[in-house]
Write a protein that binds this DNA or RNA. Structure first.
Lengths: 336, 336
DNA sequence: CTGTTAGCGCCTTCAA
DNA sequence: TTGAAGGCGCTAACAG
């Protein structure tokens, strides 16, 4: 491995001078600068960022933790975050918690031991509190994405889950549905709670009775709980529409409905949160509350960088991004 | 920041003893081990992996470079790679080159300066040669994914592009199409060349004449070249079917066709390589040659880890994974 | 403008 | 079973 000492020797200067050339710090004669640069090229020198990080106590490395790398919502966030980080000269380390509390914990440990300068954090849920406290304890700045965690104060970028949910359910009510199921994420996740609230509000405003037997809570990551769907469909008066709390749940539900010989939207209408990325444009099907994912990432990253560069003690900002109702063909009127 | 010296002091031992406890190395009395462990917990100690990496000259960090983080094909690869890496105790650093040679170069520089132990590399194309040589020069082991790079010898995991292409085109010919366009990736990418070869073979075997004016080369990342589509459609005898070399190109083409008032598959049949992930199961539409993405990632990572742990001088392995023809509803018979 | 010294946090080697 | 010395590659602080 080539070090600054190798460069120094070959260029007849001290290691310190090489360091100065690398960092453009201090005053150096144009002649030696050129000489050093040339030797660096010849020897194909690459600075060792571990050594540098060790003395500087910072790495110019940021971390983005998302909860599902196969969900287009999160990969689009990743794009936005990366573009923004790069613009400020930070490198980005992606992490994927798979909606799994244990993986999240592992990941935070790695973050801590890698000594990144900051973290853009999409929590798995309220239990992420422990991980976030851990980050605080070690003085790592972070910004929270998509889901609030009670007990933690920092910058946060959220979608308007309540409003989006209300819009979706009002759309269904407007189509004539009166039995609308909610297949929600876990109540340990703030977005799931807010989507429930929106669902509730739409019922109250629309004069529909609220029936708790129509509400089910699962894991956001995928729909595997056939039993709960079966229970919904076996109700004396089964739902004619289903509001899935996110895109992946919707996918699972539609598959399960079809296996039972039910078709969407003829037998059941389905709506959900979050779009599907490029794939969806081919054959737009699902009626969704679409959130501006790229902006989630870009804004979150911007807040994080400001937070890092302004040092501690900056006030906490909370940004709420609106969602847009996109009516497509997974919903239809109900007049039976 | 807590260091082993803080621990040592509080536990009344030397730093060396703490280090031994952390690494389970050397013989240590159960009593001191317990004492040290306890202090570590109390002080919330996290080892500094930069300091450790500096002396050990290895990081237990691997890097996965993909060319498009919003493409479900690559995110599924990421899943497979991550699962496998984790199982062997490696952490994974994701990178995204966006099919952009310059970003790829930046990324390799970061890899080099971070001193990762190895790289799973999906090249942007033949020009990646320079980056890969750079990795070789610095002695970083790597495995290539999805696309071959002439001039580089290492382990490589590929899909069978030629075979997949042939199957897709034969399917179209079987449906009665005789004017089949190929909207390909850049000829600088091995998969694009092989898909062209497969396209060609299907024509020869099927007794169809080959018309080069039906073949167009673009960038894999997205379809923005409206002019080339226009040129195809303006031919004296325009294509009745289009083979898009990957999923994202297909999405763009279908959108562009619709803007022109043409519908798929009524006016034009469309097929492509690579599936769309969960989204596609909702409303399966595109006829595709589906590649086992998760396995790409898992196998590639396994080869990489073996390569790292067996040291240099291991022989080069080449794995070719088959693709599967999934016939859906973007294709139909042509008998006009 | 350039060099010397010391130390970032950890582990290897050698000694006790 | 434990400890002391030295060094991984780099830069801050001070000297010249």
């Amino acid at each position: 491995m080539i070090t600054i000492y190798d460069i120094a020797e070959k260029a007849n200067v001290s290691a310190m001078t090489v360091s100065r050339v690398i960092n453009n710090s201090g005053r150096i004669s144009e002649a030696t600068r050129k000489r050093v640069r040339k030797v660096m090229e010849e020897l194909n020198y690459i600075p060792n960022s571990m050594a540098r990080g060790l003395v500087l106590q910072k790495t110019k490395l940021l971390s983005l933790l998302i909860t599902d790398i196969t969900n287009p919502f999160y990969t689009t966030i990743a794009r936005g975050a990366e573009d923004t980080a790069k613009r400020s000269g930070y490198k980005l380390l992606f992490g994927n918690s798979d909606e799994d509390y244990v993986k999240e914990k592992d990941y935070v440990e790695m973050i801590l031991s890698t000594r990144v300068d900051g973290v853009l954090f999409a929590p798995t849920g309220d239990a992420s509190l422990e991980q976030l406290r851990q980050l605080q304890k070690h003085g790592i700045p972070f910004v929270i994405l998509d889901r609030e965690v009670p007990g933690i104060e920092t910058d946060v970028v959220l979608g308007d889950s309540k409003d989006g949910a209300r819009k979706l359910v009002e759309h269904l009510i407007g189509l004539g549905h009166r039995r609308i199921a909610l297949v929600n994420g876990s109540p340990d996740v703030s977005t799931a709670r807010l989507r429930y609230t929106g669902y509730r509000e739409a019922h109250l405003l629309g004069g529909l009775p609220l029936d708790e037997s129509l509400v089910v809570s699962l894991n956001y990551r995928e729909f595997q709980d056939e039993a709960s769907l079966q229970a919904l469909l076996s109700l004396p008066s089964p739902p004619t529409a289903i509001f899935a709390a996110n895109n992946l749940l919707a996918v699972g539900i539609i598959g399960a409905l079809r296996q039972r010989g039910l078709s969407v939207p003829e037998d059941v209408s389905v709506v959900c949160f979050d779009d599907f990325g490029p794939a969806e444009t081919v054959n737009p099907f699902l009626t969704v509350a679409s959130q501006p994912a790229y902006q989630f990432g870009a804004l979150g990253m911007q807040l994080l960088i400001e937070r890092i560069e302004n040092g501690p003690g900056s006030e906490n900002r909370k940004i709420m991004l609106p969602s847009e109702l996109l009516i497509r063909s997974s919903t239809r009127t109900w007049d039976r």
